[in-house]
């Protein structure tokens, strides 16, 4: 957070030269800790206020009910954290990406924090994101090293049919076809799964499905057990080849 003095001394956004054409900039941010409990809708409302208090020269839609133009990347479910969320903003004044980043971070906390701001690369669109890497950890009692292999085998052997919700209703899906890679290890009291899952359109595989599978098959994280915990952290997003990072 900025101090009061910093806010008072900041140049008003009107002091920046107007652009002839609005420009789109991409913001990469993280959403971690307490922010994992905040829904997408709440995040949108929050960001629209952040843009105002940070003094970002937003371009506003014309018409009866003008609003700032912003487009979010992938959805992130409540209860999952991420180090790679994306947001495109349209600005109408010439403010540098570096300054936008500093201003945004002055209006944010550590848990919702901007990592990078840059001009959108030619031709890049959020629809290009096909895969996402997750770091999933379960902290619970009674984990044996052999469990890691069993889990890996179970989650990668086709077919693994699960009821999957989609817009058109619930259908049976072999979820291994939506897992590009998966590794699992046990250390101390922690089970760690690193997995790259499909995030494309109706094939979006919420990592909670993996948790559900572990619950159902291995009896981990029984309902009502408050001493065990799990965390889901999205670490990278990739293009269709599953290797090239989205930019």
């Amino acid at each position: 957070m900025l101090s009061e003095q910093q806010i008072v001394n900041r140049k008003p956004k009107e002091a920046y030269p107007a652009l002839e054409q609005p420009r789109t900039v991409r913001v990469k941010f993280r959403k971690i800790g307490n922010l994992q409990y905040i829904s997408h809708l709440d995040l949108q409302r929050t960001i629209s206020r952040v843009l105002v208090r940070a003094g970002i020269p937003m371009w506003y839609t014309k018409g009866f009910n003008p609003h700032a133009k912003m487009t979010f990347g992938l959805p992130l479910s409540v209860g999952a954290e991420s180090l790679c969320e994306y947001l495109d903003l349209r600005i109408d004044r010439d403010m540098s990406c570096e300054e936008i980043k500093d201003r945004l971070n002055g209006a944010l906390t550590d848990e919702l924090y901007v990592l990078d701001v840059y001009a959108v690369p030619q031709g890049s669109a959020f629809a290009d994101i096909i895969w996402a890497a997750y770091d999933i950890r379960l902290r619970t009692q009674g984990l044996s090293p052999s469990l890691a292999d069993e889990i890996k085998t179970y989650l990668t052997t086709s077919p693994l049919m699960m009821d999957k919700k989609s817009k058109s209703g619930i259908r049976q899906v072999d979820i291994t076809t939506l897992i590009r890679s998966l590794d699992s290890s046990v250390e101390n009291d922690e089970l760690r799964i690193r997995a790259t899952l499909c995030v494309s359109g109706s094939d979006y595989l919420n990592p909670e499905y993996l948790i559900r599978a572990l619950r159902e098959r291995f009896g981990l994280l029984p309902e009502g057990d408050m001493t065990s915990e799990y965390t889901i952290l999205r670490t990278h997003v990739y293009l269709t080849d599953g290797v090239t990072e989205f930019k």
Binding site: G33, Y37, I38, D42, T46, T109, L221, M226, E229, Y230
Partner: peptide
């Protein structure tokens, strides 16, 4: 990646109830 979500209400608890944002704190 290595931190521990220790204190306050556990994340398992917060994930199991409605509107966990009520109890999470951490607001700007």
């Amino acid at each position: 990646e290595n931190r521990n979500n220790g204190a306050r209400y556990s994340s398992t608890l917060l994930k199991s109830i409605s509107k966990p944002g009520r109890y999470a704190g951490g607001e700007y």
